[in-house]
């Protein structure tokens, strides 16, 4: 009996969702529509009034079970997505419930909250498999710990272990606890290999909380040479509100061009740090269609 009621509720929800979607953009038959506005986009303000101009799409989340390691059950049942564009930039506002804020990845068992937008050519199922050798996809990945680095300064060892003490590190200057990057000369940087080789995760000075990546299949995700995406995430009252934005027509040839009046494939992912989500351990939407108005 309970089951039937649940199915009925789900059906009603589905029907009303489609009515909502089709009512607004019936001609486009897209799952997410990016509304065209003439204003400057609120690329770092999840609470801007301008977002009320965008339609809210409620997207059900599923588990990532295509490739091991999997996430057996999604950490949130659904997320809300809005999108605006102004002819030069496109921005997404993603909101979801998360009772814990996980914005530090200093300790070995600390994992970040995060969200990502996948963009690829429309009608290609391969997009959900993170693309193929001939169909590359773009992933815009916002990370809570990068946001915290920007908002409050780089989180080093001392942020997780306040009583930690060290006498010296090779070639370092200044006083303990010796913070990055100021106290670290080029010679000292040699002892932080990730930083030295340019790994974007290891850079103490973050210029953006959104990393632009390109992928050509599972496991191939790579930080793009040229980074142009911006955004901002705010955690309040058990909810993340995250803006992810980029240019519609970047000069970077690693990026897909987003043209007004065209459709694209898209999907969204959420990582819940408290559940140990990382990499492939994530909640995902189905492969969706994005219409850029």
């Amino acid at each position: 009996m309970k089951k039937i009621v649940l199915i009925a509720v789900a059906l009603v929800a589905l029907v009303s969702l489609s009515v909502l979607v089709y009512g607004i953009e019936a001609r486009q038959a897209a799952d997410v529509v990016s509304i065209r506005v003439s204003d400057a986009l609120p690329v770092t303000d999840p609470h801007s009034q301008l977002w009320s101009k965008a339609t809210e799409f409620q997207l059900p989340m599923g588990s990532q079970t295509i490739i091991a390691p999997v996430k057996p059950a999604p950490s949130v049942p659904y997320i809300q997505v809005r999108s605006l564009n102004n002819g030069t930039h496109i921005a997404f506002l993603i909101t979801w419930a998360d009772s814990t804020k996980n914005d530090r990845t200093v300790k070995i068992d600390e994992f970040r909250d995060g969200s990502a937008v996948l963009l690829g050519p429309v009608g290609e199922m391969a997009v959900l498999a993170m693309g193929t050798a001939t169909i590359p996809v773009n992933v815009l990945h916002w990370k809570a710990d990068w946001q915290a680095d920007i908002d409050t300064g780089f989180q080093g060892v001392e942020s997780a272990f306040p009583n930690f003490w060290v006498d010296m590190y090779p070639n370092v200057i200044g006083e303990p606890p010796y913070t990055l990057p100021g106290n670290f000369s080029d010679a000292a940087k040699l002892y932080l290999p990730g930083w030295k080789v340019g790994n974007s995760f290891s850079q103490p000075l973050k210029v953006t909380s959104v990393e632009e990546n390109r992928a050509r299949g599972f496991g191939s995700l790579a930080t793009e040479q040229s980074q142009g995406a911006i955004g901002r995430g705010i955690w309040e009252n058990g909810q993340w509100s995250v803006v992810i934005a980029r240019q519609l027509h970047p000069s970077d040839n690693e990026d897909i061009q987003l043209i007004s009046g065209e459709k694209y494939s898209t999907a969204f992912a959420i990582w819940d740090g408290a559940s140990g989500d990382v990499g492939a351990r994530k909640s995902i939407t189905a492969l969706l269609t994005l219409y850029v108005q």
Binding site: I108, A160, L180, L192, P193, G194, F201, S202, V278, G279
Partner: peptide, 23 residues
Amino acid sequence: RGYRECVRACPYKKPMYNHETRI
């Protein structure tokens, strides 16, 4: 990218996570 799948999987626990570079 600091997923720590190797730290989890190595039975001898010889890959280690760097607090500062986060990989």
